[in-house]
Design a protein around this nucleic acid. Structure first.
Lengths: 210, 210, 210, 210
DNA sequence: TGTTAAACGAGACGGTACGTCACGTCTTCCG
DNA sequence: CGGAAGACGTGACGTACCGTCTCGTTTAACA
């Protein structure tokens, strides 16, 4: 998590300065609030510093950019809402995972924050790695387990491409979130899940098609 | 196309204002180049004006924001690369449409411009409508025909949800473009298409599910 | 009056274009109003054009700058308020001339317009000549007659410097108008006049002091 | 000196903020130079910032307008050239004071700067107070002493109006500076002084006339 | 009376400077 | 002596007018 938070972990490891983590917490809290209230573009470092009761340099000492701060502020909030799932069937797992995501994201400030951050990743090349490392891979690792379990259960071929299955499930959902052309409805969730289940069971996601 | 271009096209059609469209063309060209060269964030209105040999006010007279200018500059470039398809089979059509998109977008400045614009849409609420109207719906209307034709051919149920099918095809592709976690490879195209075809033929995309 | 009004007079003399003097009148009227309402700095050519119901180029065709337009708009208004005087005594003439000026100028929009124009003369070198020619010399020629008459009456020495006498009378008055440090009161008028009369009668204004 | 310099001097006196006064000095120096070189209208804030090696916002943080900056830049330069005088006679004092002013102002960039600032005062209402407080009253307080001394010496009546006497001396001089209709010659100085001396000694400047 | 050239209103054009904003860095001074 | 407070240099923003320049459209003198 170098980009998001540079070097703090080392210091923590040395346990030489466990003290003004208060500042860090206050900053993340302020950033989180402002991100939810105004969106990333209207959230300024100066606002965050003011609300956190902190000098700007204290922020710049820890985060190299507004985006990286927003990312860290967003992460915990978001990740805690995405449960590991294990319902006993592929269909159940996919439905539960996607439903949780839709619930968290549809029409909420979390949804707008997520969209803001994905936007920031496009505009700031430095953000790409941190985003994939700290957000995307964390979520995807969890989701890939759904496919692993389905293979273990024998529901789908053992050479199914977990990455593809996961992208088939969440890709359309992110698509609707970001473009806003259609709603993230219950019908959408059902349709998306049904398509993925049908495709995966038919073996359409097996690897090395080349 | 109100946001992007306030009625100019209509007037032009009537030939009532054949005046200095030179400026408009020069501006769009300069914007297109700078968008490709630097991305949306590093493209400034002042740079565009300078390169187009135009005053800033001439730009602000026509476009209300950097994003709307970039959108219009991007549109023609992009849309001309997305052919209407009709290969005679659902699978062929989907493969051809997705391949064309991947070719245009994967690793190209067009791809980065597209990502930049999707980002801008998240950050500037005013952009949302213009984006859906001028970009997304134009492309999607074309793509929905693929489903219409497949239904006509009897390949898939007649109550299949064209919007869902299209989002299942392109959602994962946009997902990979924007997050960069996995490549837009030939394998991905084949897998995505196979999943959609299997799901649609299995009737997983039929409407009014609940 | 080249600067203020270039070449129109000649054309008028030829009587070849007696037509849209309406425009000129409307422009001068609008300029005069806006000058009085807002002062020279807030009066813009575009405002004048709009209020006069005239295109900007019609203004630029006749006047080379905002200042020159304002000057011409101001002139007639002002000059008509400054009567020739001949009371039969130097003191009476000076008092009457100064009083007329103070009445026109003290606390009035005319006073602010006059100050605005004197300001413009300092900032736009092109204005200097036109100002002296069309405003200052017109007024001063009239005022110098006061001194001429006083000499003729034998009230003051025949080699008195009319320019100096006039500057001694009006200089302090303009000073107070422009700096606003003290009011243009009746007491001021009386004191100024008394000083000038006493000095002139004492022969303090005789020429060629070398 | 609120307008010109919002309280900085006081703080400096307390030595509570000995920080980057370098910027202030550099800005005033650059402004002073540009004012002399080009006059107030052609002096832009951006030029001043560039020459001072300073950001525009650093200027706007201290001065609310171009005029107020120019005023402060002008003040020290000018005031140091106007000596207190005490020659032992009214005539000597008046001559010396007026001569010093004429020497500083006649045909010099200081003279043009002075004229520019008087112009600015007319056009920007916010400037009026600062101008009188920081420039005019400073100079006039000094000059009024000339009259006080003449009264003490018994040269002129004890109820002579010092303000009127000073305006009679300098009013005509400013008049010629601003209108440029006649030169600020040695003859003018002698004549002006002679008029004021004669008038004052004759008791023409006594107060409460009406 | 019909033709034609000018002057007209309208307002877009290329520019310049404005004053504001937020950036990320640097300095001061307090606890 | 670390951190809050906030000034600094930077540079893009969007605005306001500038003075110039096409545009059709009157308009009025001449043909």
């Amino acid at each position: 998590m170098e980009y998001v938070n540079k070097g703090i972990d080392l210091d923590d490891a040395h346990r030489t300065r466990p003290r003004s983590e208060l500042a860090k917490v206050a900053i993340l809290r302020a950033a989180s609030e402002l991100l939810a209230e105004r969106g990333l573009r209207q959230m300024t470092i100066e606002d965050v510093a003011a609300r956190a009761g902190v000098g700007k340099s204290t922020i710049y000492r820890r985060w190299p950019s507004k985006g990286s701060l927003a990312l860290e502020a967003f992460l915990d909030d978001f990740l805690s809402t995405q449960p590991a799932v294990n319902t006993g069937s592929l269909e159940g797992d996919l439905r539960k995972a996607l439903s949780a995501w839709v619930t968290t994201v549809n029409g909420t400030s979390t949804g707008r924050s997520l969209a803001s951050l994905i936007a920031e990743v496009q505009l700031d090349p430095e953000m790409g790695f941190a985003w994939r490392e700290n957000f995307l891979e964390v979520v995807r690792a969890q989701h890939r387990q759904i496919v692993v379990h389905a293979i273990a259960r024998g529901e789908i071929p053992s050479d199914s491409d977990a990455n593809l299955v996961i992208d088939m499930l969440f890709g359309p959902a992110y698509h609707r979130l970001l473009h806003g052309h259609l709603g993230l409805t219950q019908e959408f969730v059902e349709g998306d899940v049904a398509m993925v289940v049908a495709g995966a069971k038919a073996g359409a996601a097996v690897l090395s098609r080349h």
